[in-house]
Amino acid sequence: MAAFTLKINGREHQIDVDPGTPLLWAIRDNVGLTGTKYGCGVAQCGACTVYVDGQTVRSCSLPVSAVGKSEVTTIEGLTSKEAVAVQKAWAAHDVPQCGYCQSGQVMSAAALLGLNPKPTDQDIDLAMNGNICRCATYVRIRAAIHSAAKSLEG
């Protein structure tokens, strides 16, 4: 066990865990933010997507010991204009079914629009294919990302 200070959504959290604990479980079990989901634990499904210093990261594949002073953003701390547009589009298209993967989907989609304001279908494939949705809501994810991009053109 070791003490770590995690900076998550602008707040510092002191936790005492095994250094090899994946960031995912520190966020969920130690910090208590449960919007970030566990789906596979092996960076295959994307349900645990967070930002580390603004970059999308699968929190299951990063040990707490490697986070250092980086700023972590979870779905609870998502406030960018792209995120707002994505979440609005998600509701407008009724994207979610079971919803369990959608925190990760929204994180990935908002990050995509931050880097690429007008993504093509292929750009969406490249950005979003790391997020598995077992309900296969993909048709709507694609449509909602296009809608969100359009709404940001403003």
């Binding site: 919007g35 779905i75 998502l78 509701a91």
Partner: peptide
């Protein structure tokens, strides 16, 4: 349930 499932 769409909104609650889009914001965690």
């Amino acid at each position: 349930d769409s909104v609650a499932k889009s914001n965690g």
